[in-house]
Amino acid sequence: MEKEAARPLREDIYAVQQIFVIKSTRFELNPYWSFTLNDQFINHPAPGLALNFYISNVLAIGVNGNYYNPFNVDREFNFLVRRSARVAVPLSEYDWSAAFNFTYVPAFGKFSGFSDFIFQYDAYVVGGVGAISTRPIPVIDPDNRNPKYETKLAFNAGIGLRIFFNRWFAAVAEVRDYMFNDKLENLRIVPGREGDESTWTDKTSFTHNVQAQVGVSIFLPFSFEYRLPK
Protein backbone atom coordinates (compact mmCIF):
# COMPACT_ATOMS: atom_id res chain seq x y z
CA MET A 1 0.00 0.00 0.00
CA GLU A 2 2.87 2.35 0.80
CA LYS A 3 4.30 1.69 -2.61
CA GLU A 4 0.94 2.51 -4.19
CA ALA A 5 0.65 5.67 -2.08
CA ALA A 6 4.07 6.80 -3.21
CA ARG A 7 3.00 6.96 -6.81
CA PRO A 8 2.34 10.39 -8.34
CA LEU A 9 -1.23 11.60 -8.15
CA ARG A 10 -3.37 11.67 -11.26
CA GLU A 11 -5.86 14.48 -10.99
CA ASP A 12 -8.26 12.94 -13.48
CA ILE A 13 -9.25 10.09 -11.19
CA TYR A 14 -12.68 10.93 -9.88
CA ALA A 15 -14.37 9.97 -6.64
CA VAL A 16 -17.70 9.50 -8.42
CA GLN A 17 -17.63 7.83 -11.79
CA GLN A 18 -20.20 8.55 -14.43
CA ILE A 19 -22.52 5.88 -15.73
CA PHE A 20 -20.74 3.96 -18.46
CA VAL A 21 -23.39 4.10 -21.18
CA ILE A 22 -25.93 6.87 -21.55
CA LYS A 23 -28.84 5.47 -23.54
CA SER A 24 -31.14 8.45 -23.38
CA THR A 25 -32.12 9.84 -26.82
CA ARG A 26 -30.15 7.12 -28.61
CA PHE A 27 -31.37 4.43 -30.98
CA GLU A 28 -30.66 0.77 -30.37
CA LEU A 29 -30.45 -1.57 -33.34
CA ASN A 30 -30.65 -5.20 -32.24
CA PRO A 31 -30.32 -7.99 -34.81
CA TYR A 32 -30.76 -11.41 -33.23
CA TRP A 33 -31.43 -15.07 -33.80
CA SER A 34 -34.23 -16.72 -31.88
CA PHE A 35 -34.65 -20.32 -30.70
CA THR A 36 -37.88 -21.97 -29.58
CA LEU A 37 -37.80 -22.95 -25.92
CA ASN A 38 -41.15 -24.55 -25.21
CA ASP A 39 -42.43 -26.42 -28.27
CA GLN A 40 -41.45 -30.09 -28.29
CA PHE A 41 -43.16 -30.77 -31.63
CA ILE A 42 -42.19 -27.91 -33.91
CA ASN A 43 -39.29 -25.52 -33.56
CA HIS A 44 -39.71 -21.97 -34.83
CA PRO A 45 -36.22 -20.51 -35.08
CA ALA A 46 -36.04 -17.15 -36.79
CA PRO A 47 -33.85 -14.18 -37.49
CA GLY A 48 -35.20 -11.02 -35.95
CA LEU A 49 -34.57 -7.33 -35.72
CA ALA A 50 -35.48 -4.82 -33.03
CA LEU A 51 -35.23 -1.07 -33.18
CA ASN A 52 -35.66 0.91 -29.96
CA PHE A 53 -35.49 4.58 -29.11
CA TYR A 54 -34.57 5.44 -25.54
CA ILE A 55 -36.76 8.23 -24.20
CA SER A 56 -34.73 8.20 -21.00
CA ASN A 57 -31.83 6.14 -19.74
CA VAL A 58 -34.19 3.42 -18.55
CA LEU A 59 -37.22 3.58 -20.84
CA ALA A 60 -37.46 2.87 -24.56
CA ILE A 61 -40.12 2.47 -27.19
CA GLY A 62 -39.53 0.35 -30.22
CA VAL A 63 -40.52 -2.30 -32.69
CA ASN A 64 -39.30 -5.79 -33.42
CA GLY A 65 -40.01 -8.48 -35.96
CA ASN A 66 -39.28 -12.17 -36.54
CA TYR A 67 -39.23 -14.02 -39.86
CA TYR A 68 -40.07 -17.68 -39.25
CA ASN A 69 -41.34 -18.94 -42.60
CA PRO A 70 -38.45 -20.96 -44.04
CA PHE A 71 -37.15 -22.13 -40.66
CA ASN A 72 -40.04 -24.12 -39.05
CA VAL A 73 -38.72 -27.56 -38.12
CA ASP A 74 -40.87 -30.62 -37.44
CA ARG A 75 -39.09 -32.47 -34.61
CA GLU A 76 -38.55 -36.21 -34.26
CA PHE A 77 -40.44 -36.19 -30.99
CA ASN A 78 -43.61 -35.39 -32.92
CA PHE A 79 -43.17 -38.49 -35.07
CA LEU A 80 -42.38 -40.69 -32.06
CA VAL A 81 -45.48 -39.64 -30.13
CA ARG A 82 -47.71 -40.20 -33.14
CA ARG A 83 -46.22 -43.62 -33.83
CA SER A 84 -46.13 -44.80 -30.22
CA ALA A 85 -49.39 -43.46 -28.80
CA ARG A 86 -51.32 -43.02 -32.06
CA VAL A 87 -52.33 -39.57 -30.87
CA ALA A 88 -52.35 -36.71 -33.32
CA VAL A 89 -51.25 -33.39 -31.93
CA PRO A 90 -52.38 -30.30 -33.88
CA LEU A 91 -49.36 -28.38 -35.12
CA SER A 92 -48.84 -24.83 -36.30
CA GLU A 93 -46.13 -23.18 -38.31
CA TYR A 94 -45.33 -19.50 -38.21
CA ASP A 95 -44.68 -17.02 -41.00
CA TRP A 96 -43.71 -13.74 -39.32
CA SER A 97 -44.41 -11.58 -36.32
CA ALA A 98 -44.08 -7.88 -35.56
CA ALA A 99 -44.67 -5.93 -32.39
CA PHE A 100 -44.59 -2.50 -30.82
CA ASN A 101 -42.76 -2.65 -27.50
CA PHE A 102 -41.85 -0.80 -24.34
CA THR A 103 -38.52 -1.59 -22.69
CA TYR A 104 -37.67 -0.75 -19.10
CA VAL A 105 -34.19 -1.15 -17.61
CA PRO A 106 -34.55 -1.60 -13.84
CA ALA A 107 -31.11 -3.05 -13.16
CA PHE A 108 -27.60 -2.34 -14.25
CA GLY A 109 -24.23 -3.18 -12.83
CA LYS A 110 -20.71 -4.27 -13.46
CA PHE A 111 -18.65 -7.38 -13.10
CA SER A 112 -14.96 -7.77 -12.44
CA GLY A 113 -13.66 -10.62 -14.56
CA PHE A 114 -10.83 -12.69 -13.06
CA SER A 115 -10.00 -9.60 -10.92
CA ASP A 116 -8.45 -8.22 -14.07
CA PHE A 117 -11.00 -6.29 -16.12
CA ILE A 118 -14.42 -4.77 -15.64
CA PHE A 119 -17.43 -4.99 -17.91
CA GLN A 120 -20.83 -3.37 -17.63
CA TYR A 121 -24.22 -4.99 -18.03
CA ASP A 122 -27.87 -4.16 -17.64
CA ALA A 123 -31.04 -6.20 -17.30
CA TYR A 124 -34.34 -5.16 -18.81
CA VAL A 125 -37.96 -6.14 -19.10
CA VAL A 126 -39.80 -5.76 -22.35
CA GLY A 127 -43.44 -6.04 -23.31
CA GLY A 128 -45.62 -5.13 -26.22
CA VAL A 129 -48.41 -5.86 -28.62
CA GLY A 130 -48.38 -6.77 -32.27
CA ALA A 131 -49.31 -9.49 -34.71
CA ILE A 132 -48.19 -12.96 -35.68
CA SER A 133 -49.01 -14.89 -38.83
CA THR A 134 -49.52 -18.64 -38.35
CA ARG A 135 -51.30 -21.56 -39.95
CA PRO A 136 -52.05 -25.15 -38.92
CA ILE A 137 -49.90 -27.86 -40.47
CA PRO A 138 -52.42 -30.44 -41.72
CA VAL A 139 -51.90 -33.63 -39.73
CA ILE A 140 -55.38 -35.18 -39.74
CA ASP A 141 -56.21 -34.79 -43.44
CA PRO A 142 -53.11 -33.56 -45.26
CA ASP A 143 -54.48 -34.72 -48.65
CA ASN A 144 -57.32 -32.21 -48.62
CA ARG A 145 -56.31 -29.47 -46.23
CA ASN A 146 -53.97 -26.64 -47.09
CA PRO A 147 -54.79 -23.73 -44.79
CA LYS A 148 -53.49 -20.23 -45.50
CA TYR A 149 -51.51 -18.13 -43.08
CA GLU A 150 -53.69 -15.90 -40.92
CA THR A 151 -52.65 -12.92 -38.86
CA LYS A 152 -53.51 -12.91 -35.16
CA LEU A 153 -53.19 -10.35 -32.40
CA ALA A 154 -50.16 -11.19 -30.25
CA PHE A 155 -48.87 -9.91 -26.94
CA ASN A 156 -45.35 -10.35 -25.76
CA ALA A 157 -43.36 -10.06 -22.53
CA GLY A 158 -39.77 -10.87 -21.79
CA ILE A 159 -36.60 -10.24 -19.86
CA GLY A 160 -33.12 -9.64 -21.20
CA LEU A 161 -29.50 -9.11 -20.34
CA ARG A 162 -27.11 -6.82 -22.19
CA ILE A 163 -23.32 -6.99 -21.76
CA PHE A 164 -21.48 -3.93 -23.03
CA PHE A 165 -18.19 -4.25 -24.88
CA ASN A 166 -17.94 -0.49 -25.30
CA ARG A 167 -20.25 2.52 -25.25
CA TRP A 168 -22.15 1.53 -28.39
CA PHE A 169 -21.79 -2.23 -28.81
CA ALA A 170 -23.24 -4.96 -26.61
CA ALA A 171 -24.18 -8.64 -26.63
CA VAL A 172 -27.82 -9.35 -25.83
CA ALA A 173 -29.60 -12.45 -24.54
CA GLU A 174 -33.34 -12.34 -24.05
CA VAL A 175 -36.21 -14.69 -23.26
CA ARG A 176 -39.53 -13.54 -24.68
CA ASP A 177 -42.98 -15.08 -24.59
CA TYR A 178 -45.19 -14.32 -27.60
CA MET A 179 -48.80 -15.02 -26.64
CA PHE A 180 -51.68 -15.35 -29.06
CA ASN A 181 -54.86 -17.27 -29.82
CA ASP A 182 -53.87 -19.89 -32.35
CA LYS A 183 -56.37 -21.60 -34.63
CA LEU A 184 -55.86 -25.37 -34.51
CA GLU A 185 -56.62 -28.03 -37.07
CA ASN A 186 -59.95 -29.80 -36.71
CA LEU A 187 -59.26 -33.30 -35.39
CA ARG A 188 -62.34 -34.61 -37.22
CA ILE A 189 -62.98 -34.84 -40.93
CA VAL A 190 -66.47 -33.74 -41.89
CA PRO A 191 -67.65 -36.35 -44.43
CA GLY A 192 -68.50 -34.83 -47.80
CA ARG A 193 -66.99 -31.45 -46.90
CA GLU A 194 -63.32 -32.36 -46.99
CA GLY A 195 -62.55 -29.46 -49.33
CA ASP A 196 -64.51 -26.90 -47.31
CA GLU A 197 -61.98 -24.57 -45.66
CA SER A 198 -64.35 -23.72 -42.84
CA THR A 199 -64.16 -27.34 -41.60
CA TRP A 200 -60.35 -27.46 -41.53
CA THR A 201 -59.99 -25.64 -38.23
CA ASP A 202 -62.22 -25.65 -35.21
CA LYS A 203 -61.06 -24.52 -31.78
CA THR A 204 -58.55 -21.88 -30.83
CA SER A 205 -55.89 -22.34 -28.21
CA PHE A 206 -54.10 -19.65 -26.21
CA THR A 207 -50.51 -20.32 -27.23
CA HIS A 208 -47.22 -19.31 -25.63
CA ASN A 209 -44.30 -19.23 -28.01
CA VAL A 210 -41.37 -18.78 -25.67
CA GLN A 211 -38.16 -18.04 -27.47
CA ALA A 212 -34.57 -17.23 -26.56
CA GLN A 213 -33.18 -14.34 -28.58
CA VAL A 214 -29.43 -13.96 -28.86
CA GLY A 215 -27.85 -11.08 -30.71
CA VAL A 216 -25.98 -7.83 -30.55
CA SER A 217 -27.01 -4.25 -29.84
CA ILE A 218 -25.63 -1.25 -31.64
CA PHE A 219 -26.36 2.13 -30.08
CA LEU A 220 -26.62 5.10 -32.41
CA PRO A 221 -25.17 7.63 -32.48
CA PHE A 222 -22.00 5.92 -31.33
CA SER A 223 -21.04 8.75 -28.98
CA PHE A 224 -22.90 10.86 -26.45
CA GLU A 225 -22.48 13.78 -24.09
CA TYR A 226 -22.78 13.74 -20.32
CA ARG A 227 -25.16 16.37 -18.99
CA LEU A 228 -22.92 17.22 -16.03
CA PRO A 229 -19.13 17.35 -15.92
CA LYS A 230 -17.18 14.80 -13.91
Binding site: I13, Q17, Q18, E225, Y226, K230
Partner: peptide, 12 residues
Protein backbone atom coordinates in the same frame (compact mmCIF):
# COMPACT_ATOMS: atom_id res chain seq x y z
CA UNK B 1 -17.10 15.61 -26.58
CA UNK B 2 -17.12 13.82 -23.29
CA UNK B 3 -15.56 10.70 -22.01
CA UNK B 4 -15.47 8.87 -18.72
CA UNK B 5 -13.96 5.83 -17.10
CA UNK B 6 -11.27 5.58 -19.73
CA UNK B 7 -8.89 2.75 -19.01
CA UNK B 8 -5.88 4.28 -17.31
CA UNK B 9 -2.73 2.64 -18.58
CA UNK B 10 -0.46 4.89 -16.54
CA UNK B 11 -0.66 6.53 -13.14
CA UNK B 12 -1.59 5.02 -9.78
Amino acid sequence: RASAQEILLTGP
